[in-house]
Design a protein around this nucleic acid. Structure first.
Lengths: 135, 135
DNA sequence: ACAATGTATGAGCACTTGTTCAGATATTAG
DNA sequence: CTAATATCTGAACAAGTGCTCATACATTGT
């Protein structure tokens, strides 16, 4: 993965004529200060991976329909299957993923499982995203 | 795709003993009113697909690093390559996608292309999502 | 003219994702 | 007990994604 042309990996730079602290890579840098700031913030890059996983859950029309439905209140799995237009099995798979990333929570009452959105962040992201695509 | 067990497709229901307006499918419905409301909203389901495409762009650690970097101000492609840790080619591919979904804009000055975030929605979604994963 | 530089693009490949199918688990009804 | 219902789960396959490589385009410098 650390390929020969990967420009951000200083390992591939020769030690002899390494330009000490001024060059971060072998490419020209225009906003060097911003590059440094961004690379420093990238140190805790695992946060970006967690965030990407969260957005990945949102990156599906079916799951977005589930979320939109849940903005109207809690629903059981069979309701959500009817809403989303896929099989109950598929909904269950989706809900498991959404649970793992804490987008939804559920309570179990006898045979039924009632799902709802986990917190306000989810609905906020959903609505802001919708505003963007509508603009 | 419209399989035998797809519960949301009324087409597969036999016309003879169709329960008129009361049954939407062959599964039990608990919150029938909410299912109806959600299904009505789904009529313009193309919006959810567009929204899913937008979130798909956000569902990548590399692209999130690009976005985080661009919250600090505009940057050229080579800067962004250094920031994100992938090749300039990969960055260019990512930026094309982000342009297509209107997450970034760019101005061209001689050989350089300077990118920035398109509007406030993007940064809002980014920050709200970050709050969620940090909670 | 030519070379160098910054960016964009198409092809190809390893890897991931969304769905269905088949079956498991758990709870209620008879 | 068995049957029915609601949900969950693993396997498998088509379709999609992210990267690199090679190359093309556009602008600047000699």
């Amino acid at each position: 993965m650390i390929g020969t042309t990967s420009p951000a990996d200083p390992i591939s730079a020769p030690e002899t004529d390494h330009v000490s602290d001024d060059a971060l890579c072998d490419l020209t840098l225009v906003h060097e200060d911003r590059v440094r700031a961004a690379r420093a913030a990238r140190a805790d890059g695992s946060e970006m991976e967690a965030l990407a996983e969260t957005f990945q859950v949102l990156a599906s029309p079916t799951r977005l329909r589930l979320i939109e439905a849940l903005t109207r209140g809690e629903m059981c799995v069979c309701d959500l299957a009817a809403v989303s237009g896929v099989s109950q099995s598929a909904v269950s798979h989706h809900l498991r993923m959404m649970r793992a990333l804490r987008l939804v929570r559920y309570r179990k009452e006898s045979r039924m499982a009632y799902y709802r959105l986990d917190d306000a962040h989810i609905e906020a992201v959903f609505r802001t995203g919708l505003e963007h695509v509508r603009e």
